[in-house]
Structure formats: C-alpha cells, structure tokens
Design a binder for these strands. Structure first.
Length: 661
RNA sequence: GCUGCCGUGGCUCAGGGGUAGAGCACCCCCUUGGUAAGGGGGAGGUCGGGAGUUCGAAUCUCCCCGGCAGCACCA
C-alpha cells in the first residue's frame, strides 16, 4: 500500500453497503459524513475504521473499511456518550471546584464514573450543581479535539498543573503507547478516546446518581478518592426507562420484601446472622427438603459435623495460616467469673467455628479403611458455617456471617472425576430449572500463578472438568488464573428475572486437602492412594439463595415454596362455617392454608393478602357455600375462578407439589 | 476495614434548642360488605448509645454502635 506520508495519494473508503468513496488525500470522518449527506453529518458520533472506533476529526490516511457511527449503533454510541459524559462531568467539576484532581473515568454498565482527588469529598448536594454545569457545557457545544503528545511533555504538563495522578498514569503507560490528550474547550484530559466531535452531541439524557469513596488504583492501601457515578443514555426515554428499572429492582429488594412478608429479620446483636421467622423458615424447610431429596436420589449420604473444631485441625488443613482473619476463634476454657478480671485468660487452647465443612468431611472419610471399591463416596451436609466478614461487606441475606451451605464432597479416584463432574452438572442444571432458573452461565477457572500440585496434575484436572462440560454440551467460558490454589473449578452463574447474574453453584477439584489431612484408600494393588476430593454446592448458601429467590420472584414464590399457599376467607360471617370446612379440607390435602374470619370487608382482606403475596386467595360467600364451590383469586391476577371444592383442592395441591415429588 | 449519607412509636416517614407528630399496623365499638383500604374511639415513643455545650437538647459538638450506597474483601 501507499506511503503514509504521501498526502497526495488517493484514499479509498469502503462503506458498509460495499460502495467505495475516493478522496484525493487524507480525509476525516466529518468530511466523509458530510460528503454522504447533511443528515448523516448531523447524526454522526464517531467513525469505525477497520474495526476500531475513531474520532470524526481524526484523519484517515490510507484505504480502509469504514462506517459512520450514529445513535442507531447502540453499543458503540452508548460507549462514546458515556465516556464523553464522564469527561464533561470532569470539566464541570474542575470548573466548579478548582484544585480538584482528576484520575480515571471509565464506562461501566449503564453509565460511567469518575474518580477525583479532593480534600473534601463531594456531597449529594454537589451533584445537582455539577449536573447543571454539565448541561451548560453541553450547551456551549465545545469542540473536542485529539492531540498526540510527547510522553515527557505530557508528564511535565500534568505534573505542572498539579495533576499528579494523571502524570503517574502516563508514567506507567507502556512505552509503545501513543499519548493522546483531548482538548474540550479550554479543558484538557489524558485519554485514549475516542470522543464526540463536540460536547453538544452529548444531549441531555444523563444523570448523576451517587457519590462514593474508592481507593486509588483499587488498592485499599492507597488513599481514598471521591467517586461520582452517573448514568447516560441515547435519549430521555431510555434514561427514564433505566430509572424506572432501578425503581422496579428496588421493589424486589429481599430486605424490604422479607420485612413486609414477615420472613426474617436481622438485628445488631447478631450482625450478619439471620433470625428466621415462622413464615420464612417454612420456605427454608421446603427448599432444604427439596435439595435433600435430590441429593439422596443422586447417591449422596447426608452427614452432620461439628461446629467447633480444634485449631490443630485448621492448622493441618492450612486454613489457620491463610484464612484465620476470617474465622471466629473460641478459647476452650471456663470463662473467669470474677468481676473486674478479664473473662478470658489468653492462654487457653483455641478452637474455631468452622468457616467451611471440608476438613470435617475428610475426618468422616478417614474413619475406617476405604477400598477403591467404596469410591466414589459422596457426603452432603447442610453445613452451618461462620465467617468473620468485614462489616462493610454484610448485605441482607446475600452476604452473611453465619451461613448454611448445601455442601457436599465427593471422594473419588482420578479416573472418576469426569464422570462425577458430569453427574454434578446434570443435577445442578435440573435443580436450577426446577427452581425457576433455566438459564445459567459456566466459567472454568484455571490454574492460578500461586498453586499447589504439579503441572501434570493440573493438566489432568482441568481436562477432566472441561471434558465433563463438553460431554454435556454445556457452553462455558474460561476464567484464566481464577482457580483455587488447590485445584481448578467450575463456577455456575444463574440469571434472574431482571437479568442480573449470581454465582451460586461451584464444583472444585482438590488434590491438596486429601494430602494435608492424609486421606487414603486402598487400591486394587493393595497399596494406598490419595483420593481426589471434589467440593461442590448447588445453591451455595441457603440464606443467599433464598434472597435471590425472593428477588427473582419479587416475593411471589411458586406455590410449592410459598409459606402460606392459600388463605380462606368468607365474604360475610354467614359463610364462616363453610370457610372453616374449606380450610380444613385444604390442610387435609397437605396444603399450608390459613383462615381469615375477621369481620372486614372482602376488599380489605383481598388487599392485605395480596400484599402478603399469598398465591391463592380462596373467597367463599353464600353462593359458594350453597354450591360446594370456592372462588379463587391468584396473586397477580384481578380475576377469580369459581371451581367445585374438591376440584379446586386437587388442582391446588397438585400445583403445590414439590418438583419431582 | 475505608469514604459519604442516615438512625424519631411495630412499619413508612414529618419535625427540629423550650420537655414529641402523621399515615398504616395494634386494641375497643359500630358496620355483614362479592374481590386492593367503611366509620368512630383508644393505647403506644423521650427521638441508636455515651459525653459535652446550654437556664434548657430529640434538635448543636465530639466519641461509639448500627443501617444504607460504593470501595476493599468474598477460601
């Protein structure tokens, strides 16, 4: 191709429709757009050049495949708009609050943020002021231009204006990188780009959302910066839709629903541990019963292991040195009962609440002598674990300090790993589908830099997991280096009703713990071998999974899980006797039914039970009583169905049956 | 743990230097009403905890605790 420096060479640009436009020399996206038409020029945001997104003002000096990017190109448009929005925000901040240093301001899902260094953090009130100034900057329609700078000049420039973070960023950029600075009116920022041609193109579909602290370079050892989050869309309608989505998500918040539905509560005397109420615990028990049944059918034996274990065991397992800071330690002594004396001597032998069940499961495995014929041995436990999570990490049911895992460990021979993994994947997919999560994503987390075991073992382990996925036709992605130090793992991320994903299931291979805790079995040749240990969970923890379920179903749990499946209530007290009969019949059919005989209007009672998210409101009046019928109103519906009593009961109890039961 | 905001009856929230308010829920009475709030009356809190400023603090200051949003963490 032609010499880049030869400005006289013609430049041929091929458009997405295949047509080619030829220019005498270097040409900008703006020129191309205006050449095609004034409408496109007006709509143009950026240009795609051989697959890369460029500024419209950047000269294209050689033949290329190009496409003008407009708001119709959703993904690219949002990227550019959000990134520009971050810059406009930074300009507004520096105009309003001189002396504030800028650091980084990337796009994120649904918006952007920018981290600033400032003595005094921003407050929510500042946001309105900054946002108003942003709108002004958009109105000013400042030109945005790209400049390539010499690296040292750039460092010197940013250092001289007191932007030490920017200078540090440039210093750390690879030597091969071109340093680009974008000028936006009077304001300049180091940036890779691309950007809009001018601030006017940003429009007004943005909003600053919240302020927060964030560590410089994401490291808690560094100073904390003040971060402003914003959202930005292609038009007002999209912005409104997004804000509406946030409101809808907030309505599903399991902490709010948990309170409204009387499922559980948390209080400061037991931070991070849940008080389950009668209604909530009914859901818990149903879910536990379901999982117990599935595990039993899949060849697991349920066990129960101690809560408190000697620190010696944790030393052996390796947790004592690595994870002690997250463990609750308990001295094994009689507390001092004298007043004014320390309760604890400080010299006692230490025990710890288990943060996980694996070492205890190995102890059970080690009882007696195991033959290769015994393998695989599959232990399951609804293991109650404690982890001393940082206070700031606690969040409703989603992140707790006392959790119950649907834990399980499979002890098997190396040649059984694939087979066991396949079986686990099948079980997990079936459980997720039963629970209303047919879609999930799988990640294969491979060997980290710091790891135990030889490369040969890792090769085998990774291959075994991969083979299991492939043989079931399960799509997956790699998460390189994300494996545990003791072995590779599969992570199962399910998608909920509003598109969020949650990592719940996991399958981890482990060659280290059987070694450390000296688990063995006798092989065919009569000598001892190490079993492979597979750690696995489907729900992860019951607490968190119930939180996810509550949000997924917005509190309207499927009939089989709902704490109260049906409430029977009469229109007037004339039908009380019949209502009592209906209620008794539902309970006799094994349903969790309640009876509401209060002297309240039917409107009132329907409203209240709807708020309580009872799946079926069974209303009976004179008419129903005379005809041996019931009127059923299902949650979410404004209509009701009148059915014969026995017909209604068999339909409800059939629907209310646990999956697979 | 870090930064910011918040902490008022069971719940949701208003108030804001002179010794607490509303709605819902609760209790009582009236109402017997056909599918999302019928009416009246009553009881209930000393304002997260502690210290300070003040004649006087729920209201101002400081410390602690907790909650929320992020960050960091998540074996």
């Amino acid at each position: 191709m032609s010499d880049n420096n030869s400005a006289q060479n013609p430049v041929n640009l091929r458009l997405p429709d295949g047509s080619v436009r030829t220019f005498d020399g270097p040409v900008t996206g703006t020129t191309l757009a205006s050449d095609i038409g004034p409408g496109l020029l007006k709509a143009a945001l950026a240009i795609r050049v051989n697959g890369d997104v460029w500024d419209l003002s950047r000269e294209i000096i050689a033949d290329a495949d190009v496409a003008i990017i407009t708001k119709n190109d959703e993904e690219e448009a949002l990227d550019i708009l959000r990134h520009d929005c971050a810059h406009v925000m930074a300009e507004a901040v520096q105009e309003l609050f001189p002396g504030t240093q800028v650091t980084i301001g990337p796009n994120i899902e649904d918006g952007f943020f920018y981290d600033f260094a400032r003595d005094k953090p921003f407050t929510e009130e500042d946001l309105a002021v900054i946002e108003a100034r942003m709108h002004e900057i958009v109105k000013r329609n400042e030109d945005i231009t790209r400049e390539e700078w010499d690296r040292d000049e750039a460092i010197k420039h940013f250092a001289s204006i007191g932007e030490k973070y920017k200078a540090e960023i440039i210093r750390d950029l690879p030597e091969s990188d071109t340093i680009t600075v974008y000028r936006q009116g009077e304001w300049k920022d180091l940036c890779r780009g691309p950007h809009l041609p001018s601030t006017g193109k940003l429009g007004d579909a943005f909003k600053l959302m919240k302020v927060a602290g964030a560590y410089w370079r994401g490291d808690s050892k560094n100073e904390m910066l003040t971060r402003i989050y914003g959202t930005c869309w292609r038009d007002k309608k999209e912005l409104r839709a997004y804000l509406h989505r946030l409101e809808e998500a907030a309505k599903r918040d399991h902490r709010k629903l948990g309170k409204e539905m009387g499922l559980f509560h948390l209080q400061e005397e037991a931070q991070g541990s849940v008080f389950w109420h009668p209604q909530g615990y009914k859901v818990w028990l149903e879910l536990e019963k379901y999982i117990r049944g599935r595990l039993g059918d899949s060849g697991y034996s349920e066990i129960k292991t101690p809560q408190l274990l000697d620190s010696k065991l944790w030393e052996q397992s390796g947790h004592w040195s690595k994870f002690r800071e997250n463990m609750f330690v308990v001295p094994d002594e009689t507390p001092n009962t004298e007043e004014d004396a320390p309760v604890i001597s400080g010299t006692a032998k230490l025990m710890a609440l288990k943060p996980m069940n694996c070492p205890a499961h190995v102890q059970v495995f080690k009882q007696g002598i195991k033959s290769y014929r015994d393998l695989p041995i599959r232990f399951a436990e609804f293991g109650c674990c404690h982890r001393n999570e940082a206070h700031g990490a606690l969040h409703g049911l989603m992140r707790v300090r006392q959790m119950t895992q649907d834990d399980g460990h499979i002890f098997c021979r190396e040649d059984q790993v694939t087979e066991e993994s396949v079986a686990f994947c099948e079980l997990l997919a079936s459980v997720y589908s039963d629970l209303g999560f047919p879609e999930f994503k799988v990640l294969l987390a491979t060997r980290p830099d710091v790891r135990a075991g030889t490369d040969e073992i890792w090769d085998k382990a990774e291959a075994a997991l991969e083979q299991a996925l492939r043989s079931r036709g399960i799509d997956f992605e790699y998460a390189p280096g994300e494996g545990a130090f003791y072995g590779p793992k599969l992570e199962f991320h399910l998608s909920d009703a509003i598109g969020r994903t949650w990592q719940c299931g996991t399958l981890q291979t482990d060659f280290v713990l059987p070694e450390r805790l000296d688990a063995t079995y006798v092989g065919e040749d009569g000598t001892k071998y190490r079993p492979v240990m597979l750690h696995r969970a489907i729900l992860g923890t019951l607490e968190r999974f119930l939180g996810i379920m509550i949000e997924h179903y917005a509190g309207r749990l499927p009939l089989w899980l709902a704490p109260t499946q049906a409430v029977v209530t009469p229109i007037t007290s004339d039908a009380d006797d019949y209502a009592i009969r209906v209620h008794a019949a539902l309970e006799a059919a094994g349903m969790r039914a309640s009876l509401d005989l209060r002297n309240e209007k039917i409107n009132y009672k329907v409203r209240e039970h709807s708020h309580a998210k009872v799946p079926a409101i069974v209303v009976v009046g004179q008419r129903e009583a005379e005809n041996e019928q019931v009127s059923i109103r299902r949650i979410g519906s404004k209509d009701q169905t009148v059915l014969g009593l026995s017909e209604a009961i068999s339909a409800l109890s059939k629907e209310g049956r646990m999956p697979g039961a």
